[in-house]
């Protein structure tokens, strides 16, 4: 039926919003959507599509780590083919992460605040940084980050430190690209979350290996001047 209309995608979307969920996820419905042959003996209760699952679930199903590392590896290879230098590569990874960060923030705020009677929003920088360190990291990587540091030299610089970043666990950067940190992707996520909370900043990732943690990575946050000025006013 989707093919009889000019825009099949539009028609599918409008179907999903009007049709009752039971009808929509019956094997017959999925046949028209994906033009798959009907498999005999398919269980009558098909797992709901990711868009139709409950957003506020606190217990989030885990994602296969191997599948993610292969995907991320392909993302890096894809990006690398289209750039001229390390800086460009890091910038593009940052952009990819940014698109995830905006969604992470929205989902996280919804999960944390939608049930509460007096929902709140972080307006001070330090609590916001703490919530990135614990909540964002837990939502994205399943564990909190290892440390937060404040730069001694520059008042506008803060650092989030991860001793064993999940996305870099299997990545060995060749010697001629030693400045490259694939955690630029994570930096992009952090930048998007900060932007979304109203703390515009430039976020970059740097390798800071130690003897115990060879893949230790620092996410450097350089806040914009306006943020610091506002913090002064709020004091």
């Amino acid at each position: 039926m989707a093919y009889s209309q000019p825009h099949s995608r539009v028609s599918v979307l409008s179907n999903s919003s009007t049709a009752s969920s039971v009808e929509h996820f019956s094997p017959a419905a999925s046949t028209t959507r994906f033009s798959l042959p009907t498999t005999p003996g398919l269980p009558s209760r098909v797992r709901p599509n990711i868009y139709d699952r409950n957003l506020t679930k606190t217990r989030i199903p885990e994602v296969s780590g191997a599948a993610f590392t292969f995907l991320f590896s392909e993302m890096v290879q894809y990006t690398q083919k289209r750039v001229s230098g390390i800086n460009d590569l890091e910038r593009r990874l940052n952009t990819l992460g940014y698109r995830i960060g905006t969604r992470v923030l929205e989902l996280m705020v919804w999960r944390a605040e939608s049930q509460s009677k007096a929902p709140k929003r972080e307006i001070r920088f330090l609590p916001a940084l703490m919530s990135i360190h614990t909540q964002v990291w837990r939502a994205v990587f399943g564990k909190p980050a290892d440390a937060i540091e404040k730069s001694v030299e520059n008042a506008d610089e803060y650092m989030i430190i991860d001793n064993d970043p999940l996305i870099e666990r299997y990545i060995s950067v060749p010697k001629d690209m030693s400045q490259l940190s694939c955690s630029s992707f994570t930096a992009g996520i952090v930048e998007a979350v900060l932007d979304g909370l109203g703390f515009p900043a430039r976020v970059t990732a740097h390798n800071t290996p130690t003897a115990q943690a060879p893949s230790r990575t620092t996410i450097l946050i350089k806040l914009e001047k306006s943020v610091l000025e506002r913090e002064e006013v709020l004091k």
Binding site: F70, S73, V76, Y170, I171, S172
Partner: peptide
């Protein structure tokens, strides 16, 4: 295989 800087079928130069 999970290292984006490795080219399949080429010599393995991966520190990890």
């Amino acid at each position: 295989m999970k290292n984006p800087f490795h080219t399949p079928e080429m010599p393995i130069r991966s520190e990890g």
